[in-house]
Computed example of a mutant assay.
Amino acid sequence: MGMQLHGFRILVVDDEPHIVQFLEFGLENEGFEVRTAADGMSAMAAAKEFQPHVAILDVMMPGMDGFEVCRMLKKTENVAVIMLTAKDEVEDRVKGLTLGADDYVIKPFSFEELLARIYARIRNQFPNLFGEVVMGPFQVDDRRKEIKFQGRMLELSPTEYSLLHFLLLNHGMVLSKAVILDKVWGYDFGGDENIVEVYIRSLRDKIGDKERQYIKTVRGAGYRVEA
């Protein structure tokens, strides 16, 4: 990943010890400071003392459920909340988002997916913590709106910058044209989805990615960046 975020605090709240251990180990390995809690009350106490940047909350917990913890955290703390929800609980996701959750991950999830979501939240909510971020051959400087590839500055238009930045931010995840349009061009963009293809082609030209080894096309699904 190459995002050195030492001093970055994550609170993991889940009543299943094996999930907690798995996340604690993985996140500490990435350089995060991690605190864990097995129920809502201890989560609130930990949040007060630990002041996490991101809280990962399981919806299903005995006593105070993840929704209630989310609601209380959002009232008192400046924290990004990612909910862990069961596969088929669509209402849970809607409910979580209306209570102020910032994102959700569906169980069972891969650690990479959760990590990508965590980085996306950090970027959105704590952008001032970033100088330059290195992802494989890319160096992203979001303050200057500059991206280098293999040490060479890319000449990008603002839209190209936004697109490549979004792809890199979510690297490893498959992004549909619809999602890309929404996040890069905005909800109200009335144009054609093919504009995404045009811009992807232009980015591939600029980084010399004829083989599509960095920006991959996933047939029928969208695009994925391997950084």
Rank of each mutant, 00 (worst) to 15 (best):
M1G: 06
H6Y: 15
L11I: 04
V13H: 01
I19T: 10
L23H: 01
G26R: 14
E30I: 06
M41F: 12
A45V: 11
K48R: 05
E49P: 13
F50I: 10
V54C: 10
V59M: 06
V59K: 02
M60S: 07
P62M: 04
F67H: 01
C70L: 01
K74R: 05
K75S: 12
E77W: 03
A80V: 03
I82P: 08
D88G: 13
D88P: 09
E89L: 14
V90D: 14
K95S: 05
K95Y: 07
G96I: 02
L97D: 03
D103I: 08
D103E: 14
Y104A: 07
V105M: 09
P108E: 10
P108F: 08
F109M: 10
E112H: 10
E112M: 11
E112C: 06
E113H: 04
A116G: 08
Y119P: 01
N124L: 12
P127R: 05
G131Y: 02
G136F: 02
G136V: 03
P137E: 12
R143M: 06
K145A: 09
I147N: 06
R152T: 15
R152H: 15
S157Y: 09
Y161H: 05
S162K: 15
H165Q: 10
H171D: 10
G172S: 00
V174S: 02
A178R: 14
V179F: 14
L181A: 13
D182C: 10
V184E: 06
V184M: 04
Y187W: 12
Y187V: 12
Y187I: 11
G190Q: 11
D192M: 12
I195F: 14
V196T: 09
V196S: 11
K206M: 03
D209L: 06
K210C: 02
R212N: 09
R212D: 11
V218A: 05
A221K: 15
G222A: 03
V225S: 15
